[in-house]
């Protein structure tokens, strides 16, 4: 009845990586924000994306999620071209994102927010819903029980009837992740998930990201918190001035000369203010 993780998303080509961004470029009003950037990710990996302000990481993130339209380049997801698809199509193929500045449906309950995540996996039509056919009732019941299970997993179950806007900051972040997971993603894109969190909340987040990966979901994280990012990522991609300047394990990247130059140079600038 309810489509679960699709099987038609099977790797079309065994040699092909799950995420294959090639030569992605984007400029805003003649100002180049991203130039010929490649990004390849294996199934099940946690990838960190870092770079100084204005490096283009948010741009790349938005191109992949579908919020921006790429000027050129391609983005193969399981061998299928994503550039040119709408956001809703990408979500139904398994790409979902969260937002740095938390975007919840504030007037809706916590449970309804998660149910919105299941939206793209449900299939009843307008007429079936209007005439209260059994099918739509069953689907609603399924969403409610699955939603509660997911809320329980993220320790949000006690809040299920509250309006999302009344949740604490940390709970709102968790709810956004719960909603994203409800879409049954294969690639979860987290936009600065630790923003505004204290150290212990950060540690919890770390565990959670790892748990999500254990359930078979590939994760791309943009994050300012260098400690967290280096701890959680399998590999890290570094952008600067709209181009990729390094890629590798956290240890490799941390010792990369260009990264140090870019980063320490900027950090020194920043601390000088």
């Amino acid at each position: 009845m309810i489509p679960g993780r699709r099987t038609r998303g099977e790797r079309r080509n065994r040699n092909m990586r799950m995420v294959e961004v090639r030569k992605a470029s984007k400029s805003f009003g003649g100002l180049s924000a991203l130039k010929d950037v490649d990004l390849g990710m294996e199934d099940g990996e946690i990838r960190g994306l870092i770079g100084p302000n204005g490096a283009g990481k948010t741009t790349l993130f938005n191109l992949m999620a579908g919020n921006y339209r790429a000027d050129s380049g391609s983005f193969l997801f399981d061998g299928q071209e994503m550039f040119g698809l709408g956001i809703d199509e990408r979500v139904s193929l398994g790409i979902v994102r969260t937002f740095q500045n938390i975007r919840l449906f504030g007037s809706m309950t916590v449970l309804d927010n998660v149910k919105m995540g299941f939206h793209c996996r449900a299939s009843t039509g307008w007429l079936s819903a209007a005439f209260n056919l059994r099918r739509s009732a069953r689907e609603e019941a399924w969403m409610a029980s699955e939603g509660e299970r997911l809320l329980d997993e993220l320790d949000l179950l006690p809040h299920r009837g509250e309006q999302a806007k009344n949740l604490s900051y940390g709970n709102q972040r968790r709810l956004e992740i719960a909603r994203a997971l409800a879409t049954r993603p294969r690639l979860l894109m987290l936009d600065e998930p630790a923003a505004g969190m204290n150290e212990s909340e950060g540690r919890q987040l770390l565990d959670r990201i790892r748990a999500i990966r254990r359930s078979g979901i590939t994760i791309l994280v943009v994050e300012h918190d260098m400690n967290l990012l280096m701890t959680v990522s399998d590999r890290v991609t570094v952008l600067a001035h709209g181009q990729k300047i390094a890629e590798g394990t956290p240890a490799e990247v941390q010792t990369d000369g260009r990264v140090i130059a870019e980063y320490l140079g900027r950090e020194a600038d920043a601390s000088g203010h």
């Binding site: 979500v91 919840l104 504030g106 939206h119 819903a129 739509s136």
Partner: peptide, 23 residues
């Protein structure tokens, strides 16, 4: 049901509604 919820989601935050796959 889900259609009404999607409408409210669009009202609350169109960008977030898109991000969870609402057309």
């Amino acid at each position: 049901k889900r259609h009404g919820r999607a409408l409210k989601a669009i009202r609350d935050d169109e960008i977030a509604a898109k991000a969870v796959g609402v057309n």
